[in-house]
Design a protein around this nucleic acid. Structure first.
Lengths: 226, 226
DNA sequence: AGTAATCTGTTCAAAATATCACAGATTAAA
DNA sequence: TTTAATCTGTGATATTTTGAACAGATTACT
């Protein structure tokens, strides 16, 4: 046991679920729930309890046999593991409709990703304020990133300029890119990219609709003999 | 072989990739490329060629041994498989920042998802035009869905009203839900839901940034001896 | 105290997924 | 024609991911 917290070499599938756990746990914490069992938490997320415990097991155990999890402990641990225990400075590059919508979304800051700058090359947009923050000229990108120690850059520019923006962000020390442009990005090995493809989601949904059935029948009998 | 096109019972992982193939192929088609080998296409998407062929194999083969794929044939076939060979009528419920951004995004219509209605309960928003379409009162939801034969509903309302909207959409005959609200939805078995969680993407990215390395080293030597 | 119920950590098996390997087809060039 | 180089379709294999099972711990209750 001994709580190694060697966060890395955790399976990709588990990484994808950690945020779901944290999101749900913060919700529970918000309504005053103090304890939660693996079964309760898993069921509310539509996954198996054994899988949840398996995921947590990579980090050395958050409770001990016989006792349910304490919500507060889990929230703290997960925030630390995910890396949002301290705010992660973020910038948005591209203040079109999507960029503005993201900048307006209060959830980002609440989840630990404060927006430290919004940039656009279009002079007509510059100066427009979004949630108390003016849209800046793209020239200021490097300065702001360096000064604020920006970790994550959100790319909401057209596909044609996405790679260029990515290069500039990386050069300015940003190590995480959230790419909404419909194009692949080449980045150095130490940089992580996450490609958020809207149309992909719609098409995957369309496929399932066309097939007439949701992949997993929801009407399963809950006989979790765990 | 015989091109069964029993689109269903295709692995989930493959379904997630079909849109990527189609997107890239349409891009190639747009710049005049007529032929493409599994290796070329796979490399541009950062996956293995054998995996791509395996994916295509579920649908019975789009070429024959010795000949590369024809882009036009692939595009047509994938569009049919995914279900976007004919437009998929779509509505957006919730005309906040995100809903408006989605309505403004031209890619949706281009990819086969024409917006047939935008709805919001807030009277102040009603009447505002987005890309030639007025935001409607939520009361009209069922009427429009029925009249237009809407297949997909995009939910961009607050979490508290998401389930209610989902129920109404389902009752009006919508069988695919794209849920942007941070809450689970209960739906009948014949309805497919896709949960698009923005904060989840950010947190997964944060985890990798914190781990200092992108999960997969990009500097691998391409020795695809395939 | 004793019993039943609940719970986690952990191991092991099953299922899903990704990768390898190659036969046979096709083309291009010698 | 023959050889070499590509290429897909496909089956076998390795890896990842999920799910089931259970030992030992803890609590609640009789």
């Amino acid at each position: 046991m001994e709580r190694t917290i060697r966060s890395c070499d955790v399976p990709e599938a588990t990484i994808q679920r950690l945020p779901l756990y944290l999101e749900k746990l913060k919700l529970l914490q918000g309504i005053g729930v103090e304890d939660v069992s693996s079964r309760q938490l898993a069921e509310s997320l539509d996954i198996k309890a054994s899988q949840l415990r398996h995921d947590f097991h990579y980090f050395g155990g958050f409770s001990r046999p016989g006792r349910p999890y304490r919500v507060a402990i889990l929230v703290d641990a997960l925030e630390q593991i995910i890396g949002v225990d301290t705010p992660v400075p973020t910038v948005i590059v591209g203040a079109g409709h999507l960029g503005q919508a993201l900048a307006n979304y209060p959830g980002l800051e609440l989840q630990g990703f404060p927006i430290r700058g919004i940039f656009d090359a279009n002079p007509k947009l510059q100066g427009l304020e979004i949630r108390g923050q003016a849209i800046r000229d793209l020239d200021e990108l490097e300065t702001v990133c360096r000064k604020e120690g920006v970790k994550i850059g959100v790319i909401t520019v057209p596909a044609t300029s996405a790679q260029d923006v990515a290069n500039r962000l990386v050069a300015a020390g940003v190590t995480g890119l959230m790419n909404f442009a419909p194009t692949e990005l080449k980045v150095p090995a130490h940089v992580s990219v996450r490609h958020e493809r809207l149309s992909v989601g719609f098409m995957a949904l369309s496929f399932k609709v066309k097939c007439g059935q949701s992949a997993r029948a929801k009407t399963e009998i809950v006989t979790d003999k765990d």
